[in-house]
Every structure is written in structure tokens, then in C-alpha cells.
């Protein structure tokens, strides 16, 4: 008998004569305390994310590339990793063509194996989109895919993320439903709620443990 068969046998034997407990999931518990009027959703998200040292800027669909350029300049970041085949990647590339002072854009357009060294050692910042956010916990939702790979939001020390204000959900329960994850999960889905951090030494909070040291969220007001 295989290990699997033996384990399952033991478990089934232990449950003999017993019944599965009923599913009494009470969704009000994970929704009602975590609902916000539309005008407060963004404020809540902002408050929670700023509390864990996230930088947040309000902008809009047309002005964000210019704001991003300013922020990069202010932070003296000379290179930015982008996903060239996303809408925001294209929009940024176009905007950049009109600016001579803008830092270099670098496209994540190859398998990581082909440029891993550069990604780890010479990529100070990145820009990604998000598929939404969660007001209750102050979290961005990212679903990396073949256009916008997973490591973009992890390896570069500064991560810029674009968030459409209209995609902020009240809570994780409602976000899961809206994104219909039950019917099929993305390959990788992430909730990101600030820059990487640790309190493993003496419980002193330190940012920039293994992931980004800085998380900058540009909220596009579109509602």
C-alpha cells in the first residue's frame, strides 16, 4: 500500500460512523464589520497602507506618467522596470518619448533566466498594475501573468503600483467574489500591504527585509 492509501485509510477508519459537520459559514462576519461608504474606501486604504510606510499619491489616468517621472527624479532612480505589453506599460513608454530627462525604461520581455543578474543587481525600481485593492486591510491585489511577471513586484527595491480607485473593494471576501476566483484562481495571486518588513530582531520593526524597501501607490481617481 502507498503512503497515501495508508494515510487515507487511517483517517477514514477514524471517521467511521461520524458525519461531516454542516457548512454554517456566516458571511456577515467577514463583510459587515468591513464595509465602507464609497467615499471612505480610499481613505481607509490609505490610512492602513500609510501606517506601514507605503507612499500614496492621488492622480488620474492621464497625469500619472508625469507624476511618476517626477517621483523617479526626486528619488534619483535612473532605471525603471516596466511590463511593455500592458496598457500602462505602453502609456508610459509613449509619454517617455516626449521627455528627454526621463530615466531609462527597461522592459521585462524575456524569461528571467536570461537577465537574472541584471534584475537582481541593476534594477532599482519597477512599475506594475494591480487588479484592485482591499480597504479593510489596506492591501493591493496583484495577479502577475505572462505580461507582468511575478518578480516585478518583489525584487526591485522600489515598487510603484498603479491602482484605479474604482477597483477598491471593501473586504477580501467581496474581492474574491468580484474576481470570481472560486471558478479559477490565477497562477499566482498576491495581496501586498506595504513594503517588505520584519520584526524578528527584538521586535523592532525594520523595512526592506527581502522584498521592496519602498512601495509607492499611484491611485488613479476614476470614479
Amino acid at each position: 500500500m502507498s503512503a497515501k492509501a495508508r494515510i487515507l485509510d487511517k483517517l477514514r477508519h477514524s471517521l467511521a460512523g461520524t458525519e461531516a459537520l454542516p457548512d454554517d459559514f456566516d458571511e456577515t462576519l467577514v463583510t459587515e464589520p468591513w464595509r465602507y461608504p464609497p467615499e471612505q474606501r480610499m481613505a481607509r486604504l490609505r490610512e492602513l497602507m500609510e501606517a506601514v510606510r507605503t507612499e500614496i499619491h492621488l492622480t488620474d489616468q492621464t497625469r500619472w506618467p508625469a507624476l511618476l517621472a517626477d517621483l523617479l527624479a526626486k528619488k534619483q532612480l535612473t532605471r525603471l522596470l516596466i511590463a511593455p505589453r500592458t496598457d500602462h506599460g505602453r502609456q508610459l513608454s509613449e509619454h517617455w518619448q516626449h521627455r528627454s530627462d526621463a530615466p531609462a525604461l527597461h522592459a521585462y520581455d524575456r524569461p528571467v533566466e536570461e537577465w537574472k543578474h541584471e534584475l537582481f543587481h541593476d534594477t532599482p525600481a519597477s512599475l506594475t498594475g494591480t487588479v484592485g485593492a482591499i480597504a479593510a486591510t489596506g492591501s493591493l491585489i496583484l495577479c502577475p501573468d505572462r505580461h507582468e511577471p511575478r518578480l516585478m513586484s518583489l525584487v526591485p527595491p522600489v515598487h510603484f503600483a498603479l491602482l484605479r480607485a474604482s477597483t477598491i473593494h471593501d473586504n477580501l471576501y467581496e474581492a474574491q467574489r468580484a474576481l470570481n476566483w472560486r471558478a479559477g484562481m490565477p497562477t499566482n495571486a498576491l495581496l501586498i500591504s506595504g513594503p517588505s518588513k520584519t520584526a524578528d530582531i527584538e521586535q523592532v520593526l525594520a523595512y526592506g527585509a527581502h522584498g521592496p524597501k519602498d512601495l509607492v501607490v499611484l491611485i488613479l481617481e476614476d470614479a
Binding site: A16, G17, T18, L21
Partner: peptide
């Protein structure tokens, strides 16, 4: 009381 039933609190 079913001794081997899975218990809730």
C-alpha cells in the same frame, strides 16, 4: 455524545 465525532467548540 458520539466519542469519535469531530467536535466544535
Amino acid at each position: 455524545f458520539v466519542p469519535q465525532a469531530t467536535r466544535t467548540a
